[in-house]
């Protein structure tokens, strides 16, 4: 007991009223039983979603043109991942707010060089074939200026890239070894060998799928599948689930910010949304200490309904 003034949103009155019997173990046991039965019933009635994972094999067989274009972008260093910036490489502008840019401060920790990691290294691990070996050594021995000239020629011809009779056709003569490399890369992808090559770069055992996931995410095929399932960021996708299942609905507020200005149009949207959510989370955690915020429940008076029997008994 203290003599300080009573603060209604901080202090609680002393309860001198009656106590009633309460069996806490029985309550817990009933709760477990009810939840278990409800869970089993929901699982039986609705099951759960399990869409097969996309592989580079399924992608390149379903849409060889998209695959070859993406592989070309990885080789030429024009893909999204190639220009991502930290933590993968130094090529992009990091997300920031004013001078705040933790992404940049922490820097490159998961080194990804799309040219070598996604194209040149996997192709170099292939059994020697004269045309491929020649193309690889032509690429590797070229100066970076020459490589850039090939890349530029490829980029110009890329929209007209076609795939027919098992061959990638790139309508340009100025792209050096790129057409040959992309043909072998596409063959490798369609056979499933590229999936393996990308995960086995770390050795025999692997539990890390950073490289194949980044590669797949650069194509339009993967995003197209997600778009059909309403999973993209602009579709509130983060809280959605494949099929008609409820998803992570508790992420609604996080997802919400991405839909409105200034977040939806900012190049640093992710950083701004995370910053906003961290501030809001801190507010929620610290409600008991924040004057004004902690008075809301006393003012909205929902407690009068919850404790109506108590207040009725006092009259």
């Amino acid at each position: 007991m203290t003599k300080k003034p009573f603060r209604p949103d901080v202090d609680a009155p002393v309860y001198k009223g009656p106590y009633v019997p309460y069996d806490i173990i029985k309550e817990g046991a009933i709760a477990v039983l009810v939840v278990f039965i409800l869970t089993a019933a929901l699982a039986l009635v609705f099951s759960s979603p399990d869409e097969k994972a996309v592989t580079i094999k399924t992608w390149s067989n379903a849409d060889a043109v998209d695959f070859a274009q993406t592989a070309g972008d990885e080789l030429a260093g024009t893909s999204a991942v190639a220009n991502y910036g930290a933590p993968y490489n130094n090529n992009g502008t990091s997300q920031h707010w004013g001078f705040l840019s933790p992404e940049k401060w922490i820097g490159v920790r998961i080194q990804i060089n799309t040219t070598n990691d996604f194209v040149i290294d996997p192709l170099s691990a292939q059994p020697a074939q004269p045309a491929l070996s020649a193309a690889l050594s032509q690429w590797k021995s070229a100066s970076s200026a020459t490589q850039t000239a090939w890349d530029d020629a490829f980029n110009k011809a890329e929209p007209n890239l076609t795939y027919s009779n098992g061959k990638v056709n790139i309508p340009t003569k100025a792209a050096g070894p790129i057409p040959v490399l992309l043909n072998y890369e596409t063959q490798m992808a369609r056979s499933g060998a590229l999936d393996q090559a990308l995960v086995t770069q770390a050795g025999f055992y692997t539990t890390n799928f950073t490289k194949p996931l980044l590669f797949v995410s650069d194509g339009t095929y993967f995003a197209g599948l997600a778009e059909k399932q309403h999973l993209s960021g602009s579709q509130w996708g983060m809280m959605n689930e494949t099929g008609q299942y409820p998803g992570q609905a508790w992420l609604w507020l996080y997802t919400f910010w991405y839909q409105i200005h200034p977040y939806s149009t900012s190049a640093s949207a992710d950083f701004l949304v995370w910053g906003t959510m961290m501030i809001l989370t801190a507010l929620m955690v610290l409600v008991p200490f924040i004057p004004g915020l902690r008075s809301i429940p006393r003012k909205i008076k929902i407690y009068r309904i919850i404790w109506r029997e108590h207040y009725a008994a006092k009259l």
Binding site: L44, V45, K228, Q244
Partner: peptide
């Protein structure tokens, strides 16, 4: 990939 036991109501088509 699997139907599991049951799935009396199929939620696996586009939502």
């Amino acid at each position: 990939q699997g139907w599991g036991l049951g799935a009396l109501i199929n939620l696996d088509h586009y939502g």
